[in-house]
């Protein structure tokens, strides 16, 4: 039971670290990594939840969710990398800032 809480807390810690990164880091690549750290936090909790009943077999549904989640995260990251690459090519800058908002 203790390891369950420990893993969950670790997952939440990862999630929060990632969230901070997404909002407060300017560099695009670092932001993308932060996004993936955030996702990793959620996935960690998913793995823990699959084992919430220690005696029985692991629950397959969270595993299915985890796999789907990874697929989604990978494709989104690839998409984001493509946009970021193009952005850097055009502007020569590595961060999105408020100048572009106007």
């Amino acid at each position: 039971m203790d390891s369950l809480i420990l893993y969950s807390l670790a997952g939440i810690l990862l999630f929060c670290t990632g969230l901070y990164g997404v909002f407060f880091i300017a560099h695009l690549l670092k932001r993308l990594m932060a996004m993936n750290i955030m996702a990793a936090g959620v996935f960690l909790i998913l793995i823990v939840i699959a084992r919430r009943n220690a005696e029985a077999f692991p629950d397959p549904v969270p595993h299915a969710m985890l796999l789907t989640g990874i697929v989604v995260a990978v494709s989104a990251t690839a998409f984001a990398c493509a946009i970021a690459r193009r952005y850097v090519d055009i502007t020569g800058r590595t961060g999105v800032d408020e100048e572009d908002a106007s």
């Binding site: 997404v22 932001r31 946009i83 502007t91």
Partner: peptide, 10 residues
């Protein structure tokens, strides 16, 4: 649009 799209994506 790339800047706006990037911010939206995040």
């Amino acid at each position: 649009v790339l800047g706006a799209g990037m911010r939206y994506l995040m």
